[in-house]
Amino acid sequence: MKHETIETHAGILIVLTLIVISIGGLVEILPLYFIDDTVEEVKVDGIESVRPYTPLELRGRDLYQREGCYTCHSQMIRPFRDEKLRYGHYSLAAESKYDHPFQWGSKRTGPDLARVGGKYSNEWHVQHLVNPRSTVKESIMPNYGWFLENPLQFNDIADRMRALKLVGVPYSETQAEYELNIKNFGKEVANQLDITQAEANLIEQAVSKNYDGYIAEITEMDAMVAYLQVLGTMVDFKQFDDGYFATFR
């Protein structure tokens, strides 16, 4: 085909341009779906360690995205000693496998949050989100006071889970899917992944754990703190030999 033919036919030009610019993505991304070791196998006694978020945690993740937390906080601990000393074990690909989109982030204005779960108490998170400088004097994080004021909106929680199910997150709707979840994650987790029970599960978790300290209402703070407290806690690294995860690269 002559150069002039391409340049004078917009349709051909567009198609050929698309083919050329997609090569980079196809070569770098596509093979990862076929390579066995891309996502580590993280199982303890045949049960998957990494599970999808519960309905309440999922709403917390949505809020995390709504507020743009990822613009200042990464969720990706790199395999370096200094990172391990400050944040904990390096992040596994498996730990992000149910994140759509993943929250790795690309900039740390604030600290990495990949393993913030369990590091501080619920009350600390509530107080810190409302006014970060009340606990960390030198912090430049904005106040997120409305988390406590806004009631959590969750009547669409089932739809949110269905949307993620479409891209491969194993939330269950049918009995067969539910039973498969019991096999992979155990009964307790499988119950949380059941879309038909989503609303009841969300209320149950928010009321029983009462993350925000206010019994009267389920606020956005409940979801936010529930999400923060689960980050990086799913894999119990004491169950695995040192160096086990290095064998996947």
Partner: peptide, 10 residues
């Protein structure tokens, strides 16, 4: 691999 280098560093 970067993870092996990490193990070596540790």
């Amino acid at each position: 691999t970067t993870r092996a280098l990490y193990q070596k560093e540790m």
